[in-house]
Simulated scan of single mutants.
Amino acid sequence: MSTRRDGRELALQALYSKDLVLQDANVALRRIIESFGEGEDPALEIRTKAFSFASELVNGVIANLDEIDKRIAEKSKHWSMSRMARVDLNILRLAVYELLYRDDIPKNVTMNEAIEVAKKFGAEDSASFVNGILDEIASTVTDKE
């Protein structure tokens, strides 16, 4: 697993927590990070990078939430956003943020990472659901590679 994958998973948990208990996503992220503890962990540098990336993602999604949700709503033809599983919706939000606002992440990486995170955290059909909507959105975004 990569540092960025860890960051994406942490960001997903923070955004999901925000939706579930209506708390600030950054507060949720801090609580998640604190649960890992400190100490003389040789992987501390890797965790710090993952936490930093997660924070960038959470703040980016929050700052651009209206545009991100608009894009998702436009491309989810038979699903209103209120009917989507919160996990799937937040995976989509993270991926759409990356597609629209992160020039340093290639489109295919964003797509693959979202699908893998959906396989891990979502329901049985989450990966194909996420892939279908992201394909539609990605086709409207110019390639960053």
Results as ranks from 00 to 15, higher is better:
residue 97 Y to C: 02
residue 36 F to L: 11
residue 136 E to D: 11
residue 94 L to A: 09
residue 8 R to P: 00
residue 86 R to F: 15
residue 52 S to P: 01
residue 138 A to P: 02
residue 34 E to Q: 11
residue 32 I to L: 15
residue 136 E to K: 12
residue 44 L to A: 08
residue 123 A to L: 12
residue 125 D to C: 01
residue 139 S to L: 05
residue 52 S to M: 06
residue 59 N to R: 06
residue 97 Y to F: 15
residue 78 H to C: 05
residue 65 L to Q: 03
residue 18 K to F: 05
residue 99 L to Q: 15
residue 138 A to G: 09
residue 59 N to C: 07
residue 21 V to N: 07
residue 95 A to S: 15
residue 48 T to Q: 06
residue 42 P to K: 09
residue 8 R to I: 10
residue 87 V to P: 00
residue 9 E to S: 01
residue 88 D to F: 08
residue 81 M to P: 02
residue 32 I to W: 09
residue 92 L to K: 01
residue 114 A to L: 11
residue 69 D to R: 08
residue 20 L to S: 11
residue 137 I to Q: 00
residue 25 A to T: 01
residue 101 Y to F: 15
residue 40 E to Y: 13
residue 104 D to I: 02
residue 26 N to E: 15
residue 86 R to L: 09
residue 103 D to A: 07
residue 96 V to H: 06
residue 5 R to M: 11
residue 31 R to L: 12
residue 55 S to H: 00
residue 23 Q to C: 09
residue 72 I to L: 04
residue 105 I to G: 05
residue 99 L to P: 07
residue 26 N to T: 15
residue 41 D to Q: 15
residue 78 H to L: 07
residue 141 V to G: 07
residue 135 D to H: 06
residue 107 K to Q: 07
residue 120 K to P: 01
residue 119 K to A: 01
residue 145 E to M: 07
residue 58 V to T: 02
residue 65 L to T: 03
residue 49 K to V: 03
residue 140 T to Q: 05
residue 51 F to I: 13
residue 92 L to G: 09
residue 2 S to C: 01
residue 86 R to P: 08
residue 144 K to R: 13
residue 127 A to V: 00
residue 121 F to A: 07
residue 106 P to A: 05
residue 83 R to Q: 14
residue 141 V to R: 14
residue 79 W to H: 09
residue 131 N to I: 10
residue 53 F to Y: 12
residue 136 E to C: 04
residue 82 S to N: 05
residue 113 E to A: 14
residue 58 V to L: 04
residue 59 N to A: 05
residue 37 G to S: 08
residue 28 A to S: 15
residue 24 D to H: 10
residue 124 E to M: 09
residue 66 D to W: 04
residue 130 V to H: 10
residue 53 F to P: 01
residue 130 V to D: 10
residue 108 N to E: 10
residue 10 L to A: 06
residue 40 E to L: 12
residue 50 A to M: 04
residue 48 T to L: 05
residue 9 E to L: 01
residue 59 N to Q: 04
residue 74 E to V: 07
residue 83 R to C: 06
residue 25 A to F: 01
residue 42 P to A: 08
residue 83 R to N: 11
residue 70 K to V: 06
residue 99 L to V: 08
residue 33 I to E: 10
residue 97 Y to Q: 01
residue 41 D to S: 14
residue 118 A to S: 14
residue 122 G to F: 04
residue 55 S to F: 01
residue 109 V to F: 01
residue 128 S to M: 13
residue 54 A to E: 03
residue 79 W to T: 12
residue 10 L to F: 03
residue 104 D to Y: 06
